[in-house]
Amino acid sequence: MPQNTVSFLVENQPGVLFKVSNLFRRRGFNIDSITVGALENSGYSRMTITVDADAKTLHNLIEQLDKMLEVIKVKRLDPLRTVRREMLLVKLETIDPMAREDALRYINNQHGLILDIDDENIIAEITGEPEELDQFLGYVRGIGIVEMSRTGVTAIEKGRLMLGE
């Protein structure tokens, strides 16, 4: 099933995240990731979800979200005209100099940042499309991942397309 990205504006109020996730649970929508952040001075937050869903399920999901009183606007983002980004923090552990060199090269190739480094561990920050992060993780898996954390996808449409009113 295709990966879809859906963004929506919600009232920035207590309990809204609960109601949104409660809706997903109740209607049986399986969400891969969700990101939330308050928007400046508007009283809104923007949520972005990614979901594997066929057309009918996606349609239902959008309609059900749209019906929620706390949801101001909801939109499936056009996959061809959207920039999607996710951040990954990953801690690699190795004392092997060759492996460390490989790690630094992979991080560099992904325009990653090294946030912390000592004789054993490297913490890197990588930002990119979720598929790029998957690919990066594939490269460094052999080196030794001890811990990682992904933020989930956030996204915005190109050009004149936009979510707000």
């Binding site: 309609e63 059900q64 749209d66 019906k67």
Partner: peptide, 8 residues
């Protein structure tokens, strides 16, 4: 009146 009922 409830759009979400259409095609549900």
């Amino acid at each position: 009146i409830d759009r979400s009922e259409i095609d549900k």
